[in-house]
Simulated assay, not measured.
Amino acid sequence: MKTQATRDKLIQIGAELIAEQGFNATGINAVLSRAGVPKGSFYHYFSSKEDFGLAVIDAFAEEYDERLAAILQAPDQPPLARLRRYFDVGRADMHSCDHARGCLIGNLGQELSSRSEAFRARLDQVFRQWERHLVACLEEARAEGEIVETLDVERLAVFILAGWQGAMLRAKTTKSQAPMEAFEQVLFLEVLGRESVPAPSAANAAAEAP
Rank of each mutant, 00 (worst) to 15 (best):
M1E: 08
M1C: 13
M1L: 07
K2M: 02
A5M: 07
T6Q: 10
I11Q: 09
G14I: 08
I18A: 02
G22I: 05
F23I: 04
A25H: 07
A25S: 07
G27Y: 14
I28C: 06
A30F: 11
A30C: 09
L32R: 05
R34W: 01
A35L: 02
G36C: 03
V37L: 14
K39H: 14
G40C: 11
S41R: 06
F42M: 00
F42D: 02
Y43M: 02
S48H: 04
K49H: 07
K49N: 04
E50Y: 03
E50S: 14
E50W: 04
D51W: 01
L54C: 11
A55C: 09
A55N: 06
V56I: 08
D58S: 12
A59W: 04
A61D: 14
A61E: 06
A61V: 03
Y64I: 00
D65K: 06
D65A: 15
E66D: 01
R67P: 00
Q73V: 03
A74I: 03
D76E: 14
D76M: 07
D76Y: 12
Q77D: 07
P78R: 05
L80A: 10
R85V: 00
R85N: 10
Y86D: 01
Y86R: 11
Y86L: 01
F87V: 10
F87K: 01
G90M: 04
R91L: 08
D93I: 15
M94Y: 13
M94F: 12
D98C: 14
H99E: 05
H99V: 07
R101S: 12
R101D: 12
G102N: 11
G106S: 06
N107S: 14
G109E: 13
G109M: 15
E111G: 10
L112C: 10
S114P: 00
S114A: 08
S116V: 04
R120E: 09
R122D: 03
Q125F: 09
Q125L: 02
V126W: 05
R128W: 00
R132V: 15
R132K: 15
L134A: 14
C137E: 12
E144T: 13
E144I: 00
G145H: 10
E149P: 11
E149I: 11
T150G: 00
V153K: 12
E154T: 05
V158H: 01
L169F: 14
R170D: 13
R170F: 00
T173C: 03
K175Y: 01
S176T: 09
Q177R: 04
A178C: 01
A178T: 08
A182D: 13
L187G: 06
E190M: 07
R194Q: 15
R194Y: 06
E195N: 14
V197C: 05
A199L: 12
P200R: 02
A203K: 05
A206F: 06
E208C: 05
P210Q: 04
